[in-house]
Design a protein around this nucleic acid. Sequence first.
RNA 1: GCCGAAGUGGCGGAACUGGCAGACGCGCCGGACUCAAAAUCCGGUGGCCUUCGGGCCGUGUGGGUUCGAUUCCCACCUUCGGCACCA
Length: 790
Amino acid sequence: MTPRYEPNEIEQKWQRVWEDERAFNVPNPVAGEPTAENHWYQLEMLPYPSAPSIHMGHVLNYTMGDVQTHVRRRSGWHVVRPMGWDAFGLPAENAAIREGRHPRVTIEANIDRMRAQMKRLGWAIDWEREVAAHQPSFYRWTQWLFQQFVAHDLCYRKEGPVNWCPNDQTVIANEYVVDGHCERCGAEVELRNMTQWFMRTTAYADELLEYPGGDWPEKTKAIQRNWIGRSEGAEILFEVAETGDDIAVFTTRPDTLHGATFFVLAPEHPFVDSHASDEAKEYARHAGARPVEERAAETEKTGVFSGLHAINPVNGEKLPIWVADYVLMDYGTGAIMAVPAHDERDGQFAETFGLPVVPVIDEDAKLVNSGRFDGLPAEEGKRAIVAALEAEGRGKATVNYRLRDWSVSRQRYWGCPIPFIHCEKCGVVPVPEDQLPVILPDIEDYAPKGKPPLAQNEEYMNVECPQCGGPAQRDPDTMDTFVDSSWYFLRYIDSHNDEAPFDRFVVDYWLPVSQYIGGIDHSTGHLLYSRFFVKAMNDWGMVGFREPFARVFHQGWVTLGGTKMSKTKGNVEGPDELVDRYGADAVRLCILFLGPADQDMEWTPSGVEGIVRFLRRLWRLVHEVAAGAPESGAAGPLTRKANETIARVTDDILRRFQFHTPISAVMELVNEISAAPDAPDARFAAETAVSLIQPYAPHIAEELWGVLGHERLWEAPWPEADSAQLVRDTFELVVQVNGKVRDRFEVDASLSEDELVARARESERVRAHLDGGEPRKTVVVPRRLVNFVV
RNA sequence: GCCGAAGUGGCGGAACUGGCAGACGCGCCGGACUCAAAAUCCGGUGGCCUUCGGGCCGUGUGGGUUCGAUUCCCACCUUCGGCACCA
């Protein structure tokens, strides 16, 4: 009598066994001892515990990683697969303010709940490596690393305009400004001048465009390329006629230099404030205060003549200098030479203000009106003009980037404290290493009030200067949470180390991450910053590799009602009720069966029914086969089907990174066994089905493995297809006439091409379409088809 | 505007290297079991026509290459995503 399939019972049972056995904990290699060569670091982006539940997007992400983990493990790889928490950050702080609880209390309760949910889904995670960004044992090293960046001149303080969200009362990074509004709260972003810490990401701009040894999606690379925005051009010096000062411009079109008819400064350009007319200064004050997005939205260009002129270094012409807000201070040099004939924006400006237009490139892309450069093709003209300028010290070829340095200061409470002290005498002084971490103090009032919450806490702020012992103040800001996530994957590898952030030997063993799975929305933030971190650490000798992630995969969004599931949209569907009703195995299978993992997919709980039906059928069938089928028997059709399924499933998961088709393949196998449960090879086929479904549904697979008389499927070798069994001795020959299928029948695989054609011509149906005539041409595809052309 | 991805049954999707379009699942229809229903099991299920043998059409649209195109090429349409006054 087959017992009932009770998912919750068997799932709890096996989860306990795996925990007791430490089945998915993996030791680090030890220096001096032999190490396994085939190691695999399976990583999915760490969750952000600002809500008390994981959602179906997490279930998709981590189940994919889990399938990889199981298949790799059972294929003989050493697999490390850790988990942790991106515990600092604004949403948690805002939620805490709303609920009147300390962010730590909220976050830790959320982490406990999410961890319990993860364990209930049975994911093969090495929980002994768990880290959370808000724990002092972690952020001690975040601070230590921050100081290293400063020491290596890759992190610095600068005053400059920053995006300020008046609602969240903090600076926000460029990537969180969407159409001039704060991505998180929607408030209109203002520009403010503040002194901030910046990571010098631009120092690696060129290198970030390359992916040595990396297998990254083209799409992601394109997004990063776009973000970095490398453009080759020239810097050219223009002398101001009235003052004798030189002002540099950046241009990608030095070939059009003779067509420059005016000159434009950004409103924020320092020369405006020092030398321009009062009217121009007045314009600059208004224009400069407005966000770029707002300026760009205007249809008409605005600007004011400054009263000054610039001398074109190539022909001595005097160009009026205008101040206009279509020129941006933080790209290039904040000044341009305007060539209205060949630049759309300059053209619009010239039209608005009646400025002359001089074409200098003809239809054949050759230079005209350009003095001695006339007749040169534009590309050659670029080089020739830059060379001429260079000879006179008036210009040089340069490369410019859209990428800005990464602003990392946040005027908020719930983040990693910045380990620096401001002393009037000594300046900005690092907190001595033996005093790290600078503990984030518990404070009563962390609501933003225009100045950082920590700044209001005198006990925290007032310290002795570590250098002179005089009175000094802590830095009141905290770090952007992308700093935490830029190195957490290194800490996982050595999370209990209290001597260093990590040991280089073990990190060099496991990294780069073999497979990183996460959302494509992190392409310009987290992924770029992590690459920057690793390149810098490699330069300092902390790690022996230069890229953190060898392979990257982006899962699609799980949508509900057509919109992407996320906390901010409020359409989060958690797994709890589904796991209660159907079990973790069903939920895991269901989310992966939804469709290709790299495409968006609409969450439809109705699909669960089909999966549950499949699991019950598998359950019944295995019990039936275990009770009735012979221990081992002659190979038959099921043997071949089982081997074909092994080949398909393995290839789909390991090579194609495709997770929904293997489920179909195992379903097919189970359907075939169901049709012949008494076959001599039914037991082998059933064992294969159970073994292949284990990465998806490890609990039921483990239970059924026991029913079939075996033990410890989680560490059983991954099945290998027997190539001898894959060879078919017959195949279905397709016969076409003029490319249309007219007949199909089984033939012996050993038949020659001539014999195949002969057999094809015997077919009544084919003859009917040949009309008794001779085919003009006959195409034979071995082991597939014969096509007659008439 | 620039860059990228994608368009296949009622639905999610499969078809990996140019060779049987629609695997697998959902839904729906019919049948078995049942007093009845649920569950389960069996069968059917792209459209149109049919003398029930089969025939024709069909992978966003229009062309092309090929014996043969969902797959390759050209043009276009639609949807989604990224970037965008970046000189």
